[in-house]
Amino acid sequence: MPSKKGSSRLQAMMAQFSYDHRCADSCLNKIRKNADELDKFLDTLSPGGKNKKEK
């Protein structure tokens, strides 16, 4: 019986770890998306921004 108790505890810890990192990944994806949009916006504002990147 002790192995079953330890097994459920391990499963609970793994589930919590997975949940925590899934939430963190979701937040990081939003940050990456916003950073990409900001980069595109700043490129349109800067004169000759695209010419510098192409060279």
Rank of each mutant, 00 (worst) to 15 (best):
F17N: 11
E37V: 00
T44A: 10
L42S: 03
S26W: 07
G49R: 04
K53Y: 08
C23W: 05
I31D: 13
A15P: 05
M1V: 09
G49H: 04
K30M: 09
L45T: 01
F17M: 11
I31T: 11
A24P: 08
S8R: 07
K40P: 01
S7T: 03
R9V: 00
F17C: 13
D36C: 05
G6S: 02
D20Y: 03
R9N: 05
D39S: 12
Q11R: 04
Y19R: 15
K55S: 00
C27S: 11
K55A: 00
K52R: 12
C23D: 14
D39N: 10
F17R: 11
R32V: 15
L10K: 04
N29C: 10
D36V: 04
L10T: 00
A15I: 05
E37W: 03
L10H: 03
K50A: 09
L28A: 15
K5R: 06
L38T: 14
N34G: 08
L42Q: 07
S8N: 03
E54V: 02
R9T: 02
K52G: 04
N29L: 12
M13W: 00
K52H: 07
S3T: 00
C27W: 15
H21W: 10
E37G: 00
D20K: 06
D36T: 07
E54K: 01
G48W: 02
P47D: 04
A35Q: 15
N29H: 11
Y19D: 13
D25W: 09
A15W: 04
N51T: 07
L10F: 01
R32A: 13
D36Q: 06
S46Q: 14
K5T: 05
Y19G: 12
G48M: 04
L28S: 13
N51P: 02
M14P: 00
T44I: 08
P47F: 01
A15T: 08
A35S: 15
A15E: 11
K33G: 02
L42V: 14
L28G: 14
L38P: 03
S3Y: 02
A15K: 09
L42D: 03
R22D: 15
F41L: 05
L10Q: 01
S8I: 10
F41P: 02
K4C: 02
R22N: 13
H21V: 12
Q16I: 05
P2A: 07
L42P: 00
I31A: 14
S8D: 06
S46N: 09
G48A: 03
L42I: 09
L45G: 01
C23N: 15
K55G: 07
S26M: 09
M14F: 04
K40A: 07
M14D: 06
A35C: 13
H21P: 11
